[in-house]
Design a protein around this nucleic acid. Structure first.
Lengths: 112, 112
DNA sequence: ATTAGAATCTTACCATTAGTAAGTTTGTTC
DNA sequence: GAACAAACTTACTAATGGTAAGATTCTAAT
C-alpha cells in the first residue's frame, strides 16, 4: 500500500473499482460465475434491472474483456454471455466481499 | 455460491457492492487504510473529488459504521475520520481487487 | 403459411445522482 | 482584528439511471 508503485496501484485501483462499482455490474458478474447465460436468463435472475442498463453493462463488460458475447447458430437473437478468464478471476473479489459482509454481520451481533 | 442460503448471500452481496461501489467510496476507504485522516487530508489525497461528495460519502460511511468521526478538542472544525474494525476489514477486499488487476494486466500482456 | 409471442436490443423521456462553484461558520495565525 | 484555512452547505448544471414503449429477428402453434 505504501510501496514505490503505490500511485500506479492506486490509480489502477481507482479505475477498477469505479468500473466494477457501476450499478448492477457486480450482480451481473456474480450471475455469470455459475456458467454462461442467455440475455433473458440474466435479466430474470437479477430482479430490478432494466433492459437498457443490462444491455449497456454487458457491452461495457465485453469491451473491457471480462465477458464474451457469443451468437449461437450465428443467429442475431440467440446470444450467450460467458465470462473470460479475467472475468472468472473476479470470483476472488466476490468471495472477499462475501467474507467481509460476514465479518461485519458478526461484529454487529457481538457488540449489541 | 449455490448453497441453500445463496439468495441471502446474494441479496447481501448486492446491497454491499452497490454501497461500496458508489463513486469515490472505494478510494476513500483505501485512503483511510493508512491511518486516521483529517477532512482536508483526504480531500488532498483523492484528486478530483468535490467537497460535496466527500462530505456525503463520509457521512454514509459513518452511518454504515465503517468510519468513525472524531471531533478533536471538541472543536467543530477539527475533525478526524478513522476506520472502524468493519472498515479496516475491507482491506482484504481491496487486496483482492489489486490482485485481480494484476492478474488482468498479466493476462493481457501474455495474449498480445 | 400466418400469427402470436419471446429474445434482444433501441429510443425517448423523466428522475436521481454527481460535479462545479460560490457562500457560511468556526478556528487559527500573524 | 484581519486574513486565511477547515469543514461543511447551498444552488445550479451535467451525467447517469429508470421506465416504458417500440423495432427487429427468431420460434412455436394453429
Amino acid at each position: 500500500m505504501t510501496q514505490p508503485n503505490c500511485k500506479h496501484i492506486c490509480s489502477n485501483y481507482h479505475q477498477a473499482i469505479e468500473f466494477i462499482g457501476k450499478r448492477w455490474m457486480g450482480m451481473i458478474i456474480y450471475t455469470l460465475l455459475s456458467g454462461p447465460k442467455r440475455y433473458h436468463e440474466i435479466h430474470a435472475t437479477i430482479s430490478g434491472i432494466s433492459d437498457r442498463l443490462l444491455t449497456e453493462r454487458l457491452n461495457e463488460l465485453v469491451n473491457e474483456g471480462l465477458v464474451e458475447k457469443k451468437y449461437i447458430d450465428s443467429s442475431i437473437k440467440k446470444v450467450e454471455y460467458e465470462l473470460t478468464p479475467n472475468g472468472l478471476a473476479f470470483k476472488e473479489v466476490i468471495l472477499a466481499i462475501v467474507k467481509w459482509i460476514e465479518f461485519c454481520d458478526f461484529e454487529s451481533k457481538e457488540t449489541k
